[in-house]
Design a protein around this nucleic acid. Structure first.
Length: 374
DNA sequence: AGTGCAGGCCAC
DNA sequence: AAACGTGGCCTGCACT
C-alpha cells in the first residue's frame, strides 16, 4: 500500500493526502483540468468511485487524470479493507473466547431489520476477490464446518405476492430465472440464449422497483440516458401493472394512516410521508420499500425463533444473521442434517400466518470458512 | 482531546 | 430539489 501511495503522489506531481477527497478533487479538476467536476453543498468536489471510474476512460484526453483516478480507486479498495476489516476486526477479538462477537439491535432499522454493531458483521466483504479474502478469515474450529443458508430473491418473491403480479408469481413457481423472465417480458426476446447485457438491465430494474425506482436513479445505475431509463420503467409498468398500483396504494396508505404494514401486520411508521421539497421523494420510496423489506425481516426472524427447537440434539450453533442469511457452525458429520432441518424451518417460516403465493427457496453451502460456505 | 459532520464505501 | 431502499464504520476536517 505504501508503494501504491508513492506512485500516486509521484503521478500527481505534488505531495498530498491520498485519503482526502477534497485534495484529490482539487488536483483532478482544478490543476489537471479534468472535465465534469461538480461541487457539493460543502464546496468540495465529489470524487466517489463512480466519478473516478468515468475519469479512467479519459486516457486519450486526460491521461494523467485517468491514471491517477485508476490508482486512487485501487488504493481506496485496499485502504478500506485494511482499516475497516483487517485491522479493526482484530481489535474485536474477545480474549476469553478467541472469537469476534457482534451486538445486534433488535429494532436497529426502521423496517424491522436487525442492525449489527461493534463490529458490524453484516457488511463483511464478499463481492470482490480481494474482499473475499477477509471472509476467509472467519473459520470453523477443527472438526467443524460453517454452513450458510440464504433466501433466494426473498424480496422480489414478497413483491410478487404483495403486488399480485401473475407473471412473476408463475415464474417463481416454475423456478425460472426471474431476471431473464423480466427481460423477456419487457423486450420480447426469448429466455433461451439471452444476451447477458439485457438480463443485467432487467435485474437492475427489478432491484430498482423494490426501492421505489426513478428514471434518474436507474439511468445513473445503468449509465444510460435518462429518457431511455424512463422508457424501461414505463414498459415495466405496462407489463406488470400491479407494481404501479402497489406503489401508489402504499403511498396513499402511508399518507392516510401514518404507517404501512408488513404481511404479518407489523406497523412501520412513516412520519415524513407528507414532507415537502427534497424529502418528499425519499419518504415515498421508503414507504414503498418498507412492507417488502419489513416482511422479509419478519420471515427470517420467525425462522430464527424456531431454530433452537429445530436443531436441538445436533452439535450445532446459530452464529449470525445477515438479513436474508443464517450462518451456522456444526460438527462436520452433521452438516447435512443441520442443512436439511434449517432449510425446512426457513422455507416454511411464513406459515401458518401468511400463505405466500410463491415458494420461499433457500440456498445452502458449507466449508471450513465463511467464503467457502457462502 | 473530544465531538460531529461529510464523503466515501462495505453489506443485504 | 433531488434523484434507488436499509444499515455501520472509516478517515479527514472543522470546531470546541
Amino acid at each position: 500500500m505504501a508503494g501504491l501511495e508513492a506512485d500516486i503522489i509521484e503521478l500527481a506531481g505534488e505531495p498530498f493526502n491520498v485519503g482526502s477527497p477534497k485534495q484529490l478533487g482539487e488536483i483532478l479538476f482544478d490543476r489537471l483540468a479534468v472535465p465534469g467536476g461538480e461541487k457539493g453543498k460543502t464546496g468540495a468536489y465529489a470524487t466517489g468511485a463512480d466519478i473516478l471510474e468515468d475519469i479512467t476512460t479519459l486516457e486519450d484526453s486526460h491521461p494523467k487524470g485517468a491514471r491517477l483516478a485508476a490508482l486512487v480507486l485501487d488504493w481506496r479498495q485496499i485502504a478500506k479493507l485494511k482499516s475497516t476489516y483487517t485491522d479493526a476486526l482484530q481489535d474485536h477479538i474477545n480474549p476469553e473466547t478467541g472469537r469476534v462477537h457482534t451486538s445486534y439491535s433488535i429494532a436497529g432499522a426502521n423496517t424491522g431489520r436487525l442492525a449489527s454493531t461493534d463490529p458490524n458483521l453484516q457488511n463483511i466483504p464478499v463481492r470482490s476477490d480481494e474482499g473475499r479474502r477477509i471472509r476467509e478469515a472467519f473459520v470453523a474450529p477443527p472438526g467443524r464446518v460453517l454452513v450458510s443458508l440464504d433466501y433466494s430473491q426473498i424480496e422480489l418473491r414478497i413483491l410478487a405476492h404483495i403486488a399480485e403480479i401473475p407473471a412473476l408469481v408463475q415464474a417463481f413457481r416454475d423456478g425460472i430465472d426471474i431476471h431473464a423472465m423480466t427481460a423477456s417480458e419487457m423486450f420480447g426476446v426469448p429466455v433461451e440464449g439471452m444476451d447477458p447485457g439485457i438480463r443485467r438491465q432487467a435485474k437492475a430494474i427489478n432491484f430498482g422497483v423494490i426501492y421505489g425506482i426513478s428514471g434518474f436513479g436507474l439511468a445513473r445505475n445503468l449509465r444510460i440516458p435518462r429518457a431511455e431509463a424512463q422508457g424501461f420503467i414505463d414498459r415495466y409498468f405496462e407489463r406488470f401493472p400491479g407494481i404501479r398500483e402497489y406503489m401508489s396504494e402504499t403511498v396513499k396508505t402511508a399518507q392516510e394512516k401514518g404507517y404501512v404494514q408488513t404481511l404479518f401486520g407489523r406497523k412501520i411508521h412513516t412520519p415524513d410521508i407528507s414532507a415537502k421539497g427534497p424529502g418528499a421523494g425519499f419518504a415515498k420510496r421508503a414507504a414503498i420499500n418498507a412492507p417488502i423489506q419489513g416482511t422479509a425481516a419478519d420471515v427470517i426472524r420467525r425462522a430464527m425463533i424456531r431454530m433452537p427447537d429445530a436443531i436441538a440434539g445436533l452439535d450445532a450453533r446459530m452464529l449470525l444473521q445477515v438479513h436474508d442469511e443464517l450462518l451456522f457452525e456444526v460438527a462436520e458429520d452433521q452438516a447435512e442434517d443441520l442443512t436439511a432441518r434449517a432449510r425446512q424451518v426457513m422455507e416454511a417460516a411464513a406459515s401458518p400466518v401468511v400463505d405466500l403465493k410463491v415458494p420461499l427457496v433457500v440456498d445452502a453451502g458449507k466449508g471450513e470458512n465463511w467464503a467457502k460456505a457462502h
